[in-house]
Design a protein around this nucleic acid. Structure first.
Lengths: 194, 194, 194, 194
DNA sequence: GATGAATGAGTGTTCATTCAT
DNA sequence: TATGAATGAACACTCATTCAT
């Protein structure tokens, strides 16, 4: 990669980084492209040199971040078989990027159908992993015979709920941290009833 | 109330009614005040005579609707003691106004803090009712000893999740209807494990 | 008409008048709506209160002006039967609004198909009037048996040519005035050959 | 010419060729320089290495093309003395490059004064040729004693009119072909009245 | 000589809010 | 009380031109 390409990629990353920062701070849908460019330290027009339109920027931003996240999760799930441990670590991963996931949860319903589909598809892949772990546990009589699909929607729905309304639940600090014990407890109540 | 006041209230209601209709159809945040006024059959400026700004209109609209809804729920909960029956009827009530609740769930994260607080406060009242019913059931050894708070967040989180992403889950018809059995099943799995 | 309506119409006319002025001076396609608004002494947004978009403004401007012109022509043609006299007066009418017609001729090829069709339709009505006058003259053996349609395209094409390239033919003053004798002479050569 | 110069000229020609293609397809005024560069297979910046600005490119493009055309015409006129034959062949030459001439006619009024002057100068040279042929015919009592200058403006004006509004007169195919008979007939009516 | 990333002023259009009528 | 014309900042996006590589 020559200097030119390095420079270009650097600019690209500056834009994505600035966009991510803004995304976390206040969401990106209601942020003007001019502000994103300014935060990135590039001219407004430059943004459109790297992304054909605002949507594409958002899509790439989310795609990249979610891909990173997916990788971490996959690794995690392969290494562990206990649902509680997996859940604990999954929540830790979310907590580590809570600003990001909070914005995502908040804005998700406003995204264009295509982007929403992409994101929900990733979620469904994740769900499948959880599904198999629980399924196996049920087969081995470790977990109660629950409706796995609904149990998972409970799980994902709850996490989403807390994330999307984060600012209503905590003034500062992490929502996930605050509610982690209760989320885990309930999944345990469901899968391992006394 | 003299004639003038009657007229004023009538206009006020026309605006709220039109706003509600629009709120259900496409949400209100991305609807121009001019369109709301037009739908209400009043001048654009009239809207600002009745509401100091757009936010106030949204606040009142939601307040009124949620108050009505709360009343129905209260009645329901007083009359019944079985959580599954209550849940069933609660979901029916939501389903009856699904357009409204779907828009609410979608837009909730975008509302100003004050409005969000109001709405969540109402939800917390509701939660308390559910809480007491479950608590009683646990005391009477009918339900398992679950963490009630988290169980309820699971419940509300899930419903919120389906509502906010309604269009991703159903092309037409009701999401609540579609997932009602699974929601109820999971609550039952949680409270009444085999 | 109450004060409100008067005021509105006044603003509307101010915009149209400013637009016409600009249209004559430099054409309107390459003029920003902000400049038109400024010239009219109204806010930029006001322009879009009176016209849904820039095209509509152009269409109304041309429609109104061409309608006025058409009326004058109709009157003229009804009153006169000698083609040379008609032509002379027709050219005088164009000359009276030469700035306008020059811009029109210049921009015509750039207009959206619909607008171009509208304008050419008006021209075709005009052409019909000329057609009938010449046809009658031929029947009465006053004029030579020319192909009327092509003769008229020669006429309109020529006028259009001079108008669209006005600035290339005269530095100041009127192109129509300059070439009127030659245009009339040629039509005479064609219809009344020695 | 060394290798570098050869390369440079090659690039130069590639740009001109691409520009011509685009000019014919959709005009060049409303085409971005980036698109022209892309069509030429060179970098955007390269274009400005060969032409100080967009206008210069247009000027050279038209100059080269019109020079070629002029040569063909000159040859044609030298070889023939009958105005109808010349006219027929002149129209054939235009028709052979109708896309080019149609774009030219459409955009001509929008060009900068200097370019317009250049183009009209070439036209005037052409006109002179026609002038002399007709003048000779009149002297020899073959043609009627018409005002030659105006007759020629009629001719050029008409052709220009059809070309500039080509899309309004034919959906596909050639305008010149369509109106050739009528153009010729009218010139004949004018020069050779019954 | 060629490249192509960067620039930034400019475009048409929207919309919550104001205020004279 | 009700009206609706007017405002102007804000928006996403374009493009001829520059200049470091």
């Amino acid at each position: 990669m020559n200097k030119r390409q390095v420079q270009k990629q650097f600019t690209h990353e500056k834009i994505i980084a600035a966009a991510k920062q803004i995304f976390i701070e206040k969401g990106i849908i209601n942020t003007a492209t001019a502000q994103i460019a300014e935060a990135a330290g590039v001219a407004h027009g430059t943004l459109f040199l790297h992304f054909p339109n605002k949507d594409s920027l958002v899509i790439e931003l989310l795609d990249v971040e979610l891909a990173k996240f997916s990788d971490s999760i996959k690794k995690l799930i392969v290494e562990t078989s206990d649902i509680v441990t997996i859940l604990e670590q999954y929540l830790n991963l979310i907590q580590a990027e809570e600003g990001f996931f909070s914005s995502l949860a908040r804005e998700l319903p406003d995204y264009k159908a295509e982007l929403r589909r992409k994101i929900l598809f990733r979620e469904s892949l994740l769900r499948e992993h959880f599904y198999r772990v629980i399924e196996k546990g049920i087969e081995q009589n470790i977990y109660a015979k629950v409706d796995i699909t609904s149990a998972l929607t409970f799980l994902f729905g709850t996490i989403n709920y807390y994330l999307s309304l984060k600012t209503s639940f905590v003034q500062e600090g992490s929502v996930i941290e605050k509610f982690k014990p209760s989320i885990i407890k309930t999944m345990r109540d469901l899968l391992l009833p006394a």
